[in-house]
Design a binder for these strands. Structure first.
Lengths: 147, 147
DNA sequence: ACATAGTCTACCAAGCAGATAGAGTTTACG
DNA sequence: CGTAAACTCTATCTGCTTGGTAGACTATGT
């Protein structure tokens, strides 16, 4: 299961992507639209800002804006930021590799091979899906109905 | 990341699968072989017993035995037992479905589609991998070298 | 100056992970 | 029998993470 926080982050980015990309969107508006506790969302957006995904403007007419186009923000990178490694074992993480304490040798590890495949397939999905994929729900439905 | 407990469970089952399937294997031996804290392993094996995966014998010459052939025990079922649902969102779980509290409607949920694909591909891997796949490490290496 | 809106740091309650402790029960065997 | 070997069960513990809340602070527009 992914954390609630990661879910909030993805949905907040989706909200920003759906909005006009010139006029900033208020934290309060995102929070209300997405049913996210406002104070919690503040922290999340601040974090995303520090990592360079969004920018903010203070004071009147302030708010948040996406800094990159939605199709360049992958689910994988957001999950990695918020929840940490994608891999199911520390010894399979690309970004935070760590030897398993109790594992004698990686070559002989009984379970490593299977989880390596899990890591591969989930990375494949998560890094090809972007925030842009969250848009156009209605048109997507229309396409499905048409198809 | 999967829990330490799930890792222990899988490795304990691997140890049992590798052993003679007539003479029971001691908790203490599994623990030592796999570097698992013995008292913790006791709980894990007891749990696996209650769920019908292994059987035990008490007293002298006691120990644990696999109750099903190794190729019929999937990684998926073990992970589900120990760590809970495979799906990354409660609303995508097959065995413990729960509506997301904060999600207005599943049809419109911005992130559900992507995670549904994640759930699909990981289930595919986890339910086709079995404890039998953990065996014959050496022969597997040999095959790889030969191939 | 004043309202608006983001920024930052601290704090907190509940739950979970990863064990450890120890008393109890069953079995084999002499 | 009695005793040692093993599994069984329940309780407990420590530290960390999750999912928030609180509140003071700072920048901005008019």
């Amino acid at each position: 299961m992914i954390s609630q926080k990661a879910k909030y982050a993805l949905r907040a980015l989706a909200a920003l992507a759906r909005a006009d990309d010139r006029t900033p969107m208020l934290i309060a508006d995102i929070a209300e639209q997405q049913k996210i506790p406002k104070k919690f969302l503040e922290q999340i957006l601040l974090d995303l800002k520090h990592r360079g995904l969004v920018m903010s403007k203070r004071g009147k007419d302030g708010g948040y804006l996406l800094l990159k186009p939605a199709h360049e923000i992958t689910f994988g990178e957001i999950l990695r930021m918020i929840d940490g490694p994608i891999a199911p074992l520390p010894c399979l993480s690309q970004t935070a590799y760590r030897k398993c304490d109790d594992c004698l040798s990686e070559a002989e590890c009984e379970i490593r091979h299977v989880f390596a495949r899990v890591a591969d397939v989930t990375r494949e999905v998560l890094f090809s899906a972007t925030i842009a994929d969250t848009l156009h729900d209605k048109s997507r439905v229309a396409v499905m109905l048409a198809g």
